[in-house]
Structure formats: structure tokens, C-alpha cells
């Protein structure tokens, strides 16, 4: 039998539940940790970022309006589909991050567990951060967390799956929609995650994934008047870039999750900070005894 020809993949973006080419039509080569060719990834620029924000905004009323229970079920389903792609994720993490297979398997396990962990918070977070407040008057007074809106996420550059899940899941679990700029050199787990999301029950546009240079899209997302919050995790280690993005984000008072000085160890136990960072508290005074 003749030797089989290699199928070299050219991936596309994930916007509004579809997989469009980048507006410029360009793509770039993704190599593994040793510099060998892995695949081609789409090179997103500002117009793709613009389209992604439009898609995220369009998906927002449906996703934020869904019941917390329903959102949780959808996110559990995502974890199930991720589990089905386990082997593919392991290959991509091992090749991209240059870690041994055993270590890569652990990272993928942990990423899926992390997703499940966040999914569980969907219908529990309101009980923890919401409250019924004692007031001096005939009012029933309570506070509930509400999603912020469209969140632009710069995914970590090094931790290509665990880091990715750790920044993306907390955004959407609270009812926000996301535009995510994936790691430049290690985008494949993000691309595979987009294929997972497209085949689970997540409505199109809730998560939009851009691959390419973060520098090409980040500034446009940070300055975009229709983006309500921005996570600068991907700008870790580049203080000047992070500072500029924070300045751009100030124009419409975006919520900013600041870039750490260096990329953290994502294997550490997460807290609720990343969920609550994209929630706003609404307090209602309701008259009683009428």
C-alpha cells in the first residue's frame, strides 16, 4: 500500500457559532515546542475582533437570560464532549507545551475537572455572593449578582488548555459572553475547544475564539465601547502592553482583571474571584406588608 499523504490542517476562527476564515484571509504556521510544523491557524485582526464582539453581543440576551440551572447543564455537557476529545487534547498539549505525555494527560484531566468545577457554580454563586439585607424599614431588601456583559479575554500564552479553561469558564458561567484571544504560539487546544463548544449545546456567539497575534486584536477589544470587561491574563509579563490596554479600557469604564507580573501556576486551586470579577450586584428594595 502506498504511503498515506499527510493531512495538514488549516484551522479557522470561531465566531457566532460558525467557523469563518479570518477577514484578511491570512493564516500562520503553528509549530510544536521543538519547532516542527503542527498546523496552520487563522490570523485574526481587528475586523475579526469587531465581528466577534457583534456576535457576543447578539448572544448575550439569550445566555444571560437562561436560568442558572440551564447554563450549568450546558456547561456540564461541554465537559462531557471535552472528555470525548481527551486524546486529541493530550496530543496538542504535549506537542505545544513540550511536556511529557503523562504530564499532558494530567493537565487535560485537570482542565476538564476545572470546567466541571466552574459549571457547578452556575446555580450556586448567587447563594454565596447574593444576600438578603436587614434594613430599618418595612422593606424586603436583597442583592443578586448579575452578569456584566461582553467580556474580552486574553488567554494565557503558556498554559494552553488548563490556563485557557481557567479564564474562560468563569466568564461564561455567570451569564457573560466572551471574545477570547488564544495563545499565539499554542493555539491548538483553543481551536479544539471551539470544536467542542460548537458540538455541545452552547448557543453560538456565547464564546468566540480568535487565533493570531494578541497585539493585533487586544487594543481594539480593550478600546471597544461595546465590550464591558477585559481580562488581561494573556498580557502577563508585559507590563507596558498591559498598561496601555488598561488605559484604553478606561474610556467606557470597563471592568479590568489586571495582568499578573508573570503567568501564574494554573494548577493551584481556583477561588471565586474570577467569577465575581464579571458579576455586578443589583440590590432591590421591595416594600412588604402592602
Amino acid at each position: 500500500m502506498a504511503e498515506r499523504l499527510a493531512v495538514k490542517k488549516t484551522y479557522k476562527l470561531y465566531i457566532g457559532g460558525k467557523f469563518p476564515r479570518s477577514e484578511s484571509g491570512r493564516s500562520y504556521q503553528v509549530s510544536d515546542a521543538k519547532g516542527r510544523f503542527l498546523a496552520n491557524a487563522a490570523w485574526a485582526t481587528r475586523k475579526d475582533a469587531r465581528d466577534a464582539v457583534v456576535a457576543a453581543r447578539k448572544a448575550y440576551p439569550g445566555w444571560s437570560g437562561a436560568t442558572a440551572y440551564n447554563r450549568g447543564q450546558v456547561l456540564y455537557r461541554v465537559a462531557e464532549v471535552m472528555e470525548g476529545r481527551h486524546a486529541q487534547f493530550v496530543d496538542e498539549v504535549a506537542a505545544g507545551e513540550g511536556v511529557a505525555r503523562g504530564k499532558a494527560e494530567k493537565l487535560v484531566d485537570e482542565a476538564i475537572d476545572r470546567w466541571v468545577w466552574y459549571a457547578g457554580w452556575s446555580d450556586k454563586i448567587a447563594q454565596v455572593v447574593g444576600s438578603s439585607n436587614p434594613v430599618a424599614g418595612p422593606y424586603f431588601d436583597f442583592s443578586v449578582p448579575e452578569p456584566t456583559g461582553v467580556v474580552a479575554v486574553l488567554a494565557p500564552q503558556r498554559s494552553s488548555l488548563l490556563g485557557l479553561v481557567s479564564v474562560l469558564a468563569p466568564v461564561i458561567v455567570g451569564g457573560n459572553t466572551a471574545v477570547l484571544a488564544a495563545s499565539l504560539e499554542r493555539p491548538l487546544p483553543a481551536v479544539t475547544l471551539s470544536e467542542v463548544l460548537a458540538t455541545s449545546d452552547l448557543p453560538g456567539g456565547v464564546v468566540n475564539i480568535l487565533t493570531g497575534r494578541v497585539g493585533d486584536t487586544a487594543a481594539w477589544l480593550a478600546a471597544h465601547m461595546d465590550v464591558n470587561a477585559v481580562d488581561l491574563a494573556g498580557a502577563a509579563g508585559d507590563a507596558e502592553h498591559a498598561r496601555q490596554l488598561e488605559l484604553a479600557a478606561a474610556d467606557n469604564l470597563k471592568r479590568v482583571v489586571r495582568a499578573p507580573e508573570a503567568e501564574p501556576e494554573w494548577t493551584a486551586e481556583p477561588g471565586l474571584e474570577r467569577i465575581t470579577a464579571y458579576l455586578e450586584t443589583k440590590t432591590v428594595w421591595h416594600p412588604v406588608g402592602i
Partner: peptide, 8 residues
């Protein structure tokens, strides 16, 4: 020079 939003 920045994208506008419908909120405005």
C-alpha cells in the same frame, strides 16, 4: 479610532 457601541 475605537469601535462604538449601541449603548451610546
Amino acid at each position: 479610532g475605537r469601535y462604538a457601541g449601541p449603548d451610546y
